[in-house]
Design a binder for these strands. Structure first.
Lengths: 217, 217
DNA sequence: CGCGCCCTCTTCTAGAGGTTGAGGGTTTCT
DNA sequence: AGAAACCCTCAACCTCTAGAAGAGGGCGCG
């Protein structure tokens, strides 16, 4: 048995041996299965044997830990891997939702006129006559709010607030975007995502605090 | 149909109605299933109908959130529930945070002057000279935002927006609160929580959508 | 050339998390 | 009272995830 260190890549059996100490119930069949699910992508030798590197072992460790300690489903682990290990191309689907008007009404469980109202107040707009995931979520949420007597016109303020926050993000990110360097867009997206998370978090905290005083304590 | 408010306990259908806004795919059969799995234990009427209280609704919310947002298996959720809800009273956990000024600065990793700014702009205020969990979160978040060049004065709009949303909730809940019936407070809290969740969700959706167009798709 | 390792592919499975429907009682509206 | 709406149990069924098991067949090396 040649040491796996020397060759820089390992066979599936060697990988198994490496991991088995830490994760007693990993098996060859499981590793193959994980490849099938697109979680790892080992190279192949001319004759078809899988060739693993240390990176792959790292990834497997990540997967197995996520399963064992955080109970995450593979689908979610896959997404997280894209973040932690960076897109190994494949551009990740995300299962685009694209509904037409009738489908949206159906899926969100709202009336035509509610939708019209929503569009009037700018809470939601189709892109190329189609509604995406986010639009569906808006429609559903507004539907639920309507059951409390809150109609679109009450929600204009929410839209305005969202717009102002977007403005804040835009303003911060603009210089990066302008600098037409390669990778600038990716960087801007990253920053925008991070900023918006923070702003949403702040917003939520403020609302919760405000509410507590409304309810007396 | 009598309002669920008056009776302090609800039928399974009423519980369903309460939750469906926030969790569109909860069903009666699922609620029964969760009882079968030992996650909730509603009382029964003499004729065998389930009787739910606000606590049960709270627990269901906990379960559904854990599933949806953290992908936890029921088995694990059950364990967590024992911690969060288990053993009624048991000295009120939730581990109240009550920091003084210095501790807050330390914990949030911000400067005295940043905090002063925050208080000036009404983003945060001590209660009886102490800062709670939510205040800490605000301070921390603002600290992170500051690293992107966003200072308290940029965030006034966020505060204003949060206040307006609180107003919306207050307005909706006010009639219930006034009606000084027993259980009215619990019901109001329940409604307020639900409304604010929906509003925050809506807000987040709008921000994400807006951001996408800022970044060009 | 034989023994151990590796390959693909198909079929099987165990469990989680519910759904559906039959058959039957209860509550409430009119 | 009678219908409509709601609720009950229990058993059967279903879909999806996460693999396991085995058949049938290639590599590779001492």
């Amino acid at each position: 048995m040649t040491s796996q260190a020397a060759r820089s890549h390992m066979s599936i059996g060697e990988v198994l041996a490496l991991l088995q100490g830490e994760f007693p119930d990993v098996t060859i069949s499981k590793i193959r299965f994980l490849e099938g699910e697109g979680l790892i992508e080992p190279e192949r030798s001319p004759s078809g044997f899988r060739k693993f590197t240390h990176l792959h072992v790292e990834q497997l460790r990540f997967i197995l830990t996520a399963q064992r300690d955080h109970y995450l489903p593979l689908r979610v682990i896959k997404d997280k891997m894209a973040e932690s290990f960076g897109r190994p191309r494949a551009v990740q689907q995300k299962q685009e939702v694209r509904l037409d008007r009738a489908e949206l009404l159906e899926a969100a469980g709202i009336e035509e006129e509610t939708l019209a109202e929503l569009e009037d107040y700018g809470l939601l707009a189709p892109v190329a006559r189609r509604y995406d995931e986010e639009a569906l979520n808006v429609a559903r949420t507004v539907g639920a709010l309507a059951r409390f007597g809150l109609r679109a016109r009450h929600l204009r303020a929410v839209r305005a607030a969202a717009e102002r926050e977007c403005g804040l993000v835009e303003q911060t990110v603009a210089p990066v975007l302008k600098r037409r360097a390669p990778g600038a867009i990716g960087e801007a997206e990253e920053t925008a995502r991070e900023l918006s998370t923070l702003l949403l978090d702040l917003h939520a905290s403020l609302v919760r605090t405000g509410l507590r005083s409304v309810l007396g304590r």
